[in-house]
Design a protein around this nucleic acid. Sequence first.
DNA 1: TCTAGTTGTCTAGAACAATAGACAAATCTG
DNA 2: CAGATTTGTCTATTGTTCTAGACAACTAGA
Lengths: 246, 246
Amino acid sequence: MSEAGIERRSGVALWRQIADQIRQGVGAGLSDESGRLPTELALAERFGVNRHTVRTAIQALVQEGVLRAEQGRGTFIERQPRLSYPIGPRTRFSEGLGGQARELRGNLLDHAYEEAPEAVAEALEIAPGAPVLRLDTMAEADGRPISRARSYFDAQRFRGFERHFARTGSITMAYRHFGVSDYLRRSTTISARHADSADLEILKLSPGAIVLVALGLNVDQAGRPLQFSETRFSADRVELQVGNTT
Amino acid sequence: MSEAGIERRSGVALWRQIADQIRQGVGAGLSDESGRLPTELALAERFGVNRHTVRTAIQALVQEGVLRAEQGRGTFIERQPRLSYPIGPRTRFSEGLGGQARELRGNLLDHAYEEAPEAVAEALEIAPGAPVLRLDTMAEADGRPISRARSYFDAQRFRGFERHFARTGSITMAYRHFGVSDYLRRSTTISARHADSADLEILKLSPGAIVLVALGLNVDQAGRPLQFSETRFSADRVELQVGNTT
DNA sequence: TCTAGTTGTCTAGAACAATAGACAAATCTG
DNA sequence: CAGATTTGTCTATTGTTCTAGACAACTAGA
């Protein structure tokens, strides 16, 4: 389904196009079993560019942690398969990735009490401008940044939520302190875009990287909105799974 | 959550980054009610670049049909909001976009009877190497390419499927000829990546564009696998909707 | 009609990307 | 060890992108 097509004068540097293709090819059969990439010269011929251009692409991928170059030996793939993140009525971060990573951690980056922007107020079914708690978080699996999120809560109902989250690192746990023993994911809207500069910094991505953007609304058992959030996943590290697996 | 962040020396030309941001901003509140973009000079200051760089970006978007520039008046948005594509147990292309576009069409690009690749065989629960029908299709809404898909069917059960699809332009209709009156989407796996050259050509995208990739498995009422497919959506034109809207 | 504000066009130079060639340094094989 | 293969570093040149400034062409409002 893919092809080694390189466009000149397209506004995207050749080395970046090649880097993107190699990054993709790492999943498919670009390398042999040993995880060894073709030589720089072979890649240069294949893409129809100079060896130095290929080198620039490889250096960028080494920087990203996708490849590892060894002088005299060759260039090798640093295997790190995508985590599969399930999305459904019972979407929960910590349980979702269970078993796929050894260490999962949610970190609180920032929080503030603010007036609800229009879209937030509508989703939470409160008045525009009503006070909301904004929570900026990020999550790591085995030390690799996986996602960052901005969540909004009704401030009247959840004042002090951030302290409970910071202590436990879990949204589910923090809810308990407010009498919410269970909740459901009512809807999720998924799109994708290029990472912005904050994404690059927080998720440790390189320019041009892609993020999956999931807008989600959680509701309590009575169907009342609890939390409206935008989560950004590094598209290189995560895929989203809708429905059961099998 | 987004920011006017422009990365220099990133391998992506400034004009292209700016074009991407403007294309995105067209959905959000980059323009006032009248659909008029800020002036070239204002945009140049906002992004911290020269006016000519902004002009290059705008020209690319005019070419794409996203903007329209009028000398002496300003630059205006050619409104085309993202289509929202619902994903759930009853995912069907034609119904999913109902109401959001006037004209929907599915086109058959190519088909062939082949031996099942490993991943396909596993998904369809048939023997590796067993004969399968591969169907390459693309879909347009109001003349704009929306998605392309590669689907696999068990050749023993669905021989001749491609003729019924080509005639009706509908998977659902084609199933009827094989006694399948209803089917369910068992699972969908969503990821995102840069468009490859075939994507660029078929979906009429510009280099560096993003595609949402959905791997889906349809099953019949008895739970037997019917169809395994990979669909690629232009991320600029489509978002995926999981769960109900309200 | 005049003026202010906007997009369109041109020229020239600076910064960056890509090519080309040569050779060093490390690794593996025989 | 000798030779072949591969990645690493350096220099020089060419082509593309970005900046800078000036002015033309068009529009809208006073």
